[in-house]
Simulated assay, not measured.
Amino acid sequence: MSSEENNRGAFLIQEHFCTVMGAPITARLCAALSLSLNRDTRTGRRVLDWPGEPTTDALPLRLVGGLHALDLSGQAPGLSDVFAGKVTDSDAVQQVLRDTFLAHDDALLPWLDGPPQTNEAGRSAALMTGLIQVAHRHGPKLELLEIGSSAGLNLLIDRFHFDLGGVAVGPANSSITIKPEWRGAPPPDVPIEIESVRGVEIHPIDVSDPAAADRLRAYVWADNPDRLDRLSRAIAMIAEKPVNLTQGDAADWVEARLAEAQPPGVARVLMHSVVWQYLGEERQARIEAAMAVAAEQATAERPLAWVRMEPNRVAAKQQVWIQSWPDHGDPIILADVQAHGAWIEPV
């Protein structure tokens, strides 16, 4: 398979993921992109000649984000008809895309420079599913460390209210209630006291900047207007009280945080969602090594846990994993989850 064929194929892979996740508009767009991309623009040439692994690099979602930004700006009415689901014929969608690339090449090209930072607040429900198990194993007090925090929306996890299969967690008066479809037995109904929440991001998004906030909105799929509303509410939460988000390298930060003194009676938890693939093998290995060292030092009084929501691309779904120390060091899958947290199915 040639590089160009591989890069086109990445859009068909993304189409499959979008179809599985109930996002027909975005799926249709990805399918049309696989056919309509050409070398008439710099954006098209860069996509077709992409040197890396396009699916791992989230190449389709980079481009879809740029197109959605154009849609939200109102600068491309024909494209907006596609995003609104008014234009569905494959040939017609392809023609709209070709016209859009020619008219907006300069605007689209920079969207290929970095991976999407969706930072979906709904994923907090998947992470909370893991945190409930940590509290069930090791007690209610938790210290949370998140890598790949993007704009810090999941660092609001202590301010969200959750309804997880009828189990309530978090402040009842929160302006955001996250209630995914729960498919199975409810999680343990145990107390949780989040003592602190800190995060790190190599390129943090400052949502107090309107342009940055608009960029986040562009990465929300047009199929999910409820996610756009929740994003706006989360941005307002951060404006009211900023989150503890540091700019830095994930591996450096994890090593430094794990080396800090840990208060007794508090479980230290490393958590992340849909970020592991972007770290690269060297950072992954360093984080795994740092966690292994910290795990050897974990005690009943100072437990350690790792909660993560990451993709299983073979199964075309996300999964929540947990492991904790002492005594629970083998990683287990807690649940399958929809990529944006719309449903959670315990396993």
Rank of each mutant, 00 (worst) to 15 (best):
T88Y: 03
D57G: 01
A76H: 02
L48K: 04
E53P: 02
D71H: 14
L79H: 10
A69G: 05
F101Y: 09
A84L: 05
G78V: 10
A58G: 01
D91P: 00
W50A: 00
G85A: 10
R98Y: 10
L70C: 12
R62I: 11
D71E: 14
L72H: 09
D81N: 15
P60G: 01
P77W: 15
F83N: 02
P54H: 03
A84M: 05
F83I: 04
S73C: 06
D91M: 10
K86P: 04
Q95H: 04
A76W: 11
V93W: 13
F83C: 12
Q75H: 15
S90H: 13
D99L: 03
L48D: 06
T88Q: 11
L63A: 04
D49E: 15
T55G: 00
Q95V: 00
S80F: 12
D89C: 09
A69L: 13
P77M: 11
V93D: 08
H68V: 12
D57Q: 05
P60S: 01
W50S: 00
D49H: 13
D99A: 10
Q75E: 15
L59T: 04
V82L: 04
G52F: 08
G74S: 09
A76N: 03
G74V: 07
V87C: 06
Q94H: 00
Q94W: 02
L79D: 10
G85F: 14
D91Q: 12
E53H: 08
A92L: 09
T56S: 02
V87T: 13
A58S: 09
R98I: 07
D99T: 06
P60K: 03
